[in-house]
Each structure stands twice: as C-alpha cells, then as structure tokens.
Design a binder for these strands. Structure first.
Lengths: 276, 276
DNA sequence: TTGCTCCTCACGTCACGTGAGGTGGC
DNA sequence: TTGCTCCTCACGTCACGTGAGGTGGC
C-alpha cells in the first residue's frame, strides 16, 4: 500500500502578501473581519500561515478593492455563485457609473459657472398669484423616484379632474417642502389647479393655496437637470435677498408646457419662490 | 447730510447651513481649517455669524465636495483666478475619468474571470533558454512612464547595437525586478540579446543572463493590458506551483513581434518565469 | 550579535456624523 | 418652564498606513 500525506504547503504572511498583492496590514485586518482567515495560526507565536489555495480568494479581494468596493460587499460577493457574483458586480459598477455621470454634468456646469463668476444668466421677474384651489398628491421620496413620481402623479390628477367633470385652472406645479437629495427626502407635493371642487380619492388632497406674490425665472428643459437647476434656484433666492424681501413659502416648479413636446433649449418650466 | 450705515445682514450657522447646503458640522470644520471663516464670531458665546456674501463661496465648496475633491485642493481652487480654477478643475476631473477608465477595464476583466472561475485560458509551456549576452537599460519608474520607457529604451538599444556593428541574437525582453504599481516602482530592465560584445554607453549595461528553464504563455496585444495581464502571470505562477517547481528569478515579458505590425488579437509577447 | 520577520497595541488619515452635556434667548 | 439653537469636546466611521516595542529563528 503506497500512501503518503503531503503537508499542505503553507506560507507566512509576508510570502502570502507578495503573491496576493495585499499588504500585510490588510491581511491582518481581513483575518480579524473573517474575510480571509489563515489556514493555520500558531497558538504560541500567533504567526499566521496561509495555504496556496487561498491565493485565488486573496487576489479576487485585491481586485475588488481596486474598484473601491467596500469590504462588506466583497464578503457578500465571495459567498455567491459565479453568476450571482457577476450580477452583483454589475450592480455595483452601474452605481459607480451613475455617480460619475452625475458628477460629470456637475463639472460641466461648474466650468461654465466659474467662467462667468458673478454674472447670472437668469432673468428674474415677479407676478401675483391669486388664491386657487388645487388637487394635490404629496409624498416623501428620494432622488431616483422623483421624476417618475411627478410624471405619474400629474397624469393621475389630470385623469381624475377630467372624470369628475371639472376643469383645470392653470398649469400643474410641484412644491418642494424639503430638499430632495441623499440626506433629505422632501416631501414633494404635485399640484393641479382646478376650477371647482373635486372629491379627492386615494392619496389626493384638495386644498386652497393662498394668494401671494412670487419671484420666478423661466428655464429650459436642459437647465432643469441637476446640477444646473441649482443655479436657477440661487438666482431667484439672490433676487429676493438683494431686493430686501424674504422667502415666504417653499419653492416650486411650474410646468407650463409638456415635456414631450419641446426641445432641450425651449422654455420648459418656472422656478418660483413666494416672497413678502 | 444723509448717511446711514446698514449693518451687514448676518446669519446664524443654522440659517447659513440651509442656504449653502452645507452641514453645520462641515461649516464648523471649514472654519477650523480656515477654508470658510465666519464674518463674525461672538467673543462671549462663540456663536458664528456669516454674511450673505459668503453664500457663493460656501455653495462652490459644496459643489466641489460633491465631486469628492479634497478640502486642500478646494482651498487652492478658491484662491485662483477663474481661468486657473477651470484648468485645475479640468485636471482634477481628468484624473477621476482616468481612474474610472482603469476600473472599467478591471470590471470587464473580472466579469470574464468570474464566469470561468477555475478555468484558465492560457496554455503554459516550458523551454530551455541558453546563456546569453544582453545589452540592458534598467530604471525605477511608475505606471505612467512604463510603456514609454520600454519603447524608447528598446529603440535606443537596437540603434546602439546596429551602430556598433554587432547583431541582435533574439527578441528583446523586459525583466520586472519589482512590481510596478502605486506602491512600488520596479525596477524594470529592458534587455536586448546580442551576438558579440558591445561597448555599453550611457545608462546601458552589458550582462550575461545564465541558462535557465522557463515556463511561459503567449498572449495577445489585447491581453497584455492591465488588468488582463495579471491573469497571464497568475496562470504561469499556478503552473509552476502545481507542477512542484519553484520560481527561480523575476518574471519577464518577451516581445517577439513589433507592436505596430499586429492586430489586438494576434500573438504579441510571452509572459515567462524562470523556474527550478 | 545582527538582520529579518513576525506579533500586538495604539494612533494617524479624511471629512465628516453622532451623541453627551451645557448655554442663552424667546 | 419648554423648545429651539448654538457651543465644545469626544468618539465613531472606513480601510488601512505608520510607528513603538517586543519575540523568535537563522
């Protein structure tokens, strides 16, 4: 009977560090976190010994870290089957690409903004808005859901007004009761002015907007995208302050034309602040 | 004589936080760092008061932070003229795009790699390499300079061999005495085998490479790019280990055809490890 | 003995977030 | 008195890097 047991070839942390392209410090951390536990730890000296089999896992961790994937997420990926792992990697990477796309637009905006520091391209005007009844739908939501919510709710409100035999009394608008960004989720209220009382159903409310004066500026579809739209808000806020007024209510966007009927440089909506 | 001094309208940190889209905590940090110092600080209470003029600077900081620009770099940008600031922003952003491009390739590589976990697409062979004289140029350098260095040095060596009346005795190759990445700068040695002694000039050395056996795999121009090339190294290392051998010297890439004469999927070079 | 590699704390980095505990004006 | 806003520490986050001070085998 021929039988011999080959001791598995173990590496010290230094040798394993070199063949895995991970720092010794990182390896000790991954051990502590349970992400990559040495094949053997000497009870006396505490020395960590890694087996050659562990090199693949270590290299995969190293490559995923180069993508800046957080360690928790890497741990999850390592527990998955190949196809699940590919899917999760795809999800992670599309998040990165999305965030880069947002920032790329921000850079373009900043370049224009820095060139013309001090100048404003926005023409701010004022108008009286009479008291009006409006059918509204309000919700707290994050950036991703925002434009879908506005489009859907506007549709729902229009349909309901028509079915009720009432008529709209002006363009729809959206009130931002709070900011919508990573930290804050609004709420946001989609409003449709109506000429007579309509029974609200579901999430709807019928309320009366008081008469007020508002400062506004008209922007194009192009300018309505983040981050360019920030400049429009700034322009109106700036006008209110420079003219010694005070903001009286939450900002709003008034949609006076339909999204699908215009080009990127046509007037699309007003950014407005009630003031006193 | 009509004269009145209007006290500049000052805001508390909370009000300024809302109009600048910066957190109160961030504002206190920026004060401490001297990046955005309040117009006035009450000596008794320590309360910070900001002037309306400071909103523009604060918003610019906020937008630059959304790009993940470090605070030190933001401070530098704020001190620049508009055109300098635009240039610096462009530099910063192209660094980001470059890093994303590298990671995008890495994702593509990882997707292929995960799908075929366990399989290797590389055919590893061995060959005897006789003792040979080579004219070499060695340098420590970073990733950016690497391919230029290889191309230039190869050209310099070929020219010098020709001028000396000697002949090349095989394809040029590059020895990676150390890794070339963010942490490590090689060194890297470009080598050209020669059939007779040549007087080295400048940075050159004439040395004799001992005879050895090497394991190698042939890769295409496409596969030679980071990060795909890592897999080729792994394949050869794996073969050496699985066959009970040991790596005997630094890895090398043997360039047996000219870069400009082939397509991306044609064989381009060998990745080789001497072993014993 | 010297040099090398390994070990465990502990603290630093970066740009904040999150309490803890207290003040001051309406 | 309650609530709101402001203050200053101090500690937590994330994924390590960088010593400090010590051990163990050649």
């Amino acid at each position: 009977m021929m039988s011999h047991t080959t001791a598995p070839p173990l590496m010290t942390i230094g040798a394993f560090s070199r063949s895995s392209r991970l720092s010794v410090k990182a390896l000790r951390l991954y051990d502590q976190l349970g992400l990559l536990v040495p094949a053997r730890i000497d009870a006396d000296s505490g020395y960590r010994y890694y087996s050659a089999d562990q090199v693949d896992r270590a290299r995969l961790i190293s490559l995923l870290r180069r993508l800046d994937m957080p360690l928790q997420r890497i741990a999850a990926v390592l527990d998955m089957s190949a196809s699940e792992a590919v899917a999760e990697l795809g999800r992670f990477w599309s998040e990165v690409e999305e965030s880069v796309a947002v920032r790329r637009r921000l850079v373009a905006y900043l370049e224009r903004h820095l060139e013309g520091r001090g100048e404003t391209m926005y023409d701010v005007r004022t108008r009286q808005v009479p008291k009006q009844r409006a059918l509204t739908i309000q919700r707290a939501l994050t950036v991703e859901g925002l434009s879908d919510f506005i489009m859907e709710s506007t549709g729902v409100l229009y349909t309901h007004v028509e079915k009720s035999g009432a008529k709209t009394a002006g363009p729809s608008f959206v009130i931002y009761h709070g900011e919508v960004n990573e930290d804050s989720d609004g709420p946001v209220e989609v409003c449709l002015p109506v000429d007579s009382d309509v029974d609200p159903v579901g999430e709807m409310t019928l309320r009366t907007e008081p008469a007020h004066t508002e400062a506004y500026t008209t922007i194009t579809l192009q300018q309505c995208k983040f981050p360019g739209i920030l400049e429009a808000y700034s322009a109106v806020e700036g006008w209110i302050q420079e003219n010694g007024h005070e903001i009286a209510a939450s900002p709003r966007e008034v949609y006076f034309v339909e999204h699908s009927k215009i080009g990127p440089d046509d007037p699309f909506c007003d950014v407005a602040y009630p003031f006193r």
